[in-house]
Design a protein around this nucleic acid. Structure first.
Lengths: 236, 236, 236, 236
DNA sequence: AATGAATGAGAATTCATTCAT
DNA sequence: CATGAATGAATTCTCATTCAT
């Protein structure tokens, strides 16, 4: 099977019709004067926007973007339908925000984690663990990315692509460094390797996310993928 | 060992809420006296159902299931909107039919192709080429699968998953055989490898589809992934 | 009271927010292959688009554009809500279409009627009668214009203005000719006179339309306005 | 004779359907303990109600009743959305209050101004100047009337009409007096003349408002309309 | 069998109004 | 008194599906 995922940048004429939308992607951070009411007890009810985002992640993951009704997100978040629109421009904006908020966070964590490790092998293991959500609290993050990355081609192409590109870039850099210091074979492109690794891990995570697997199984899978990749890319 | 193929089946409570039921979710091969008119003279009016299916594959691959309008499929197929309903129960049924009709065919091709090759390395290369659409003209079909496998939890989990599971099964079998005859290392699960390979190839195909890359580049990438995987899984 | 009507061209920042809308104002003439079903018995059920337009005129006139629900138009036209959208892009488009269809017709009639009369006095009387709907079947036309001209500032400014401008232009031309051949005083601007006459007649028509006055009363009013204007503008 | 001032009152069955009723459509001068706080020290916090009313006049004049959001009025008035409801029963009530508070004031001014002039010609000139907003700063107020008089059948017919009727009445009275003392021709109805004059001036003001004309141009137009009308209605 | 105009249920979104702070 | 976040009823519009021709 050859293929292509929900894609990640306008491949020719795709889902056009609305060339507008989200002209000013950022906006809406919180309907004025937050801060007083927000972060009520220092933890619970942290912020309504956050609550909606979390609810949306849950529902999108379960039903997919298109099958999710705005009212379902609202109900899951425990707010009125209209409240969603106090924090997000529209349904699309909710999905986009999930990406922008979460993925950039994942990217930060990745960049830092990779920087802390000194040799190639360690870096690669960090990448694997992080993407599979085995690192600290990255579990939910990973799940969001894995599951939601696939919901709306149009949206994600348009707004997810740049961030996704940076993620791959960081991975490719790890392989490149490996080549530079002789740890990685020279006859393969760092970009291709980055993509392949991401895809492999993504597939593992997807199977796990959908199958409801336990973490132990996941760790074992991670271990195996890491080992195989290391052997595969090793200089010989 | 690890990863017992969670296999995409409805993970617990998924997309319930729609009590609308699936009274007879199965299929509809062709409402009304099909068989007689079908494949009429092997020439004119060859088969309208076929034409619709082909058109749907094209459109679904480009825009995804939810963003595709029934009228678009009709237009692409050169038939009236209503005609679709003469051959399919509803829009869902069109997608389901694609999975059932076509993917099982693709699966056959894979099974056969793998069976024809005698050693592990050759089998793996066949898999790679097939999935990357380098083997025949199965590109678009593969795209439908990958694109849509991620949009509708309900439909695809329910109908796509079993076939996807079989695909992975076939791949896993290749690795398993490799282990049996000593070509593949024993410390990794064939299932995990199958999934990882599929994911890696899928990611490559995605990048290619989006980047508008040429086939040559694709072949080179395929070559690199295959080589890396082979070295990675080789017994040592 | 100084004032200004619903206006007729973007006076500074007015009801902006949607700079788009109606980019391709024309469109939708009839959903494909009309002609067969249309104009059924040569008269009744002439055309669905026409039926909707007529219903909309009635309802808009009674309740105003903003207070009219699309479903009310549909009910009045005896069609389903969705059918409206087969012939019109949206609610706005219905109002706009009323103008484009009807006013241009009124304009045609005016131009021709004025051309047929030779002296100023007769021309002026024709204008009066036409605008007041006293000429042949122009009654409904006049009513549409009078009542609907005032419904949506934004819409009418944008789409009604050009046509309204032409209407005034034609009137002004009548006065101008009057000045040229000595029938009309030279110390007043034809444009100002055109506007004033239109406004005066519009006011009369409005009172009549809302009050449900009878035609006799209207004729008398028309007679009086015409007489007064004639005396007022006469060369002395 | 003709035209007995149909006067904008609900022409038969108008805008029924909304059985929501007008339980106590009348008015609300100022909910809660007004009077005490109002017009506090004649300086600071002069009167919030007044501020809201002024802001509403501005916004309604520009965008019309239906296109104006309550929040826009609030912002323009520099108060919170909820504050509006401390002084007005609802959005409708704001518009109604404008009519009742302001227009009756305008009417007073007109009545007085007309009373101060002794001959017909002077009276007519006063009317012209007042309606064209040349007499004081009543421009915006006049705009509210004209713009909104045409948008909402229900509200304005119900609440604006009576006042508008009085305005026309006053004008008609001027013409009637003119007839009584021989300054105005007897063969035209004062009511018709009143309506026609109002309409003519309204149209002029409209053109001016839209064309962004300067006051000088306006004065010239006013001069011309006044002169033409005077000549037109003069006894001969 | 084929057509495509018509249908109407369903979904996103808006905004007047309320009410806890 | 004021505030403005939250609410949810109401409305427009879409599009899968039907059915008369």
């Amino acid at each position: 099977m050859a293929n292509s995922e929900p894609s990640f940048s306008p491949p020719a004429g795709t889902e056009a019709s609305d060339g507008e939308a989200h002209e000013e992607a950022q906006r809406v951070v919180a309907p004025r004067k937050r801060a007083r009411t927000s972060r009520r007890t220092a933890s619970g009810n942290t912020d309504k926007r956050e609550r909606i985002l979390k609810a949306a992640i849950r529902v999108f993951a379960r039903k997919g973007f298109y099958s999710t009704r705005v009212s379902e997100i609202a109900k899951a978040a425990g707010v009125a339908d209209g409240t969603i629109y106090l924090y997000f421009k529209n349904k699309d904006d909710v999905l986009i925000s999930i990406f922008q908020d979460r993925i950039s966070k994942l990217l930060e964590v990745l960049t830092e984690a990779v920087a802390q490790k000194s040799n190639f092998e360690e870096k690669l293991r960090v990448v694997v663990d992080l993407q599979l959500g085995l690192l600290d609290g990255s579990r939910e993050l990973a799940e969001v990315v894995t599951v939601n990355l696939r919901q709306s081609s149009r949206l994600l192409k348009q707004f997810g692509a740049p961030l996704f590109g940076k993620y791959l870039e960081t991975l490719a850099r790890v392989f490149e460094e490996g080549q530079e210091n002789g740890a990685v074979r020279q006859d393969v492109s760092p970009r291709v390797l980055a993509r392949a690794l991401w895809g492999a891990l993504d597939a593992i995570a997807l199977g796990w996310a959908l199958g409801g697997g336990d973490e132990q199984m996941m760790r074992r899978s991670a271990q195996q993928v890491a080992a195989t990749f290391l052997d595969g890319v090793r200089t010989r």
